[in-house]
């Protein structure tokens, strides 16, 4: 009587989970877009969930899956609140750059102002190739719409 899910298989799952976790960490630390940072955080959660499921399967009980479901729930909550916060932050500074938000630093420490460096260093002209962004084909005339106060605030 054997269980096909051996310890070696468990190790495989754990390795993949650890890799996902590390990649998420890399994204969270290195990317400056708030949304991409949160995507990376979700990726870390994916890695953890994978490990938990594998552990549960290895031990032959449901606890790992139950825990993963809880993580799923928490991730959903986190995503919703994070999106709300990001919208608010964007409304404040019209930017998703996380480096704009370093007011809580120690007194006398200058800001790590990468925005200015970037604008000085990088020409923003249109380039072909991998730097090209997709463009939407114009679809007729834009309908006239009343300007709402909340759209105005963002401008």
């Amino acid at each position: 009587m054997t269980d096909p899910f051996s310890i070696d298989l468990l190790t495989n799952y754990l390795l993949v989970g650890a890799a996902l976790f590390a990649l998420g960490m890399l994204g969270f630390v290195s990317r400056r877009n708030l949304i991409v940072m949160f995507l990376s955080a979700e990726m870390m959660l994916q890695g953890v969930g994978l490990s938990l499921v594998a552990f549960g399967r290895f031990h032959g009980n449901w606890t790992g899956q139950v825990f993963t479901i809880v993580i799923l729930t928490v991730a959903a909550c986190e995503a919703s609140i994070a999106m709300a916060l990001i919208v608010v932050l964007y409304n404040r500074k019209e930017s998703l750059d996380v480096t704009l938000w370093q007011e809580v630093r120690e007194e006398g420490v200058g800001p790590t102002d990468l925005v200015d460096e970037a604008t000085q260093a990088a020409p923003l002209e249109h380039e072909d190739g991998i730097e090209t962004y997709p463009t939407l084909t114009p679809a007729g005339l834009e309908p006239a719409h009343p300007i709402q106060p909340w759209t105005e605030r963002r401008r």
């Binding site: 290195s30 877009n33 930017s95 998703l96 480096t99 925005v115 970037a118 604008t119 990088a122 730097e131």
Partner: peptide, 11 residues
């Protein structure tokens, strides 16, 4: 669409 901070990584 384009944003500076998307084209630059931090450290």
């Amino acid at each position: 669409g384009k944003a500076v901070y998307d084209r630059a990584a931090r450290t």
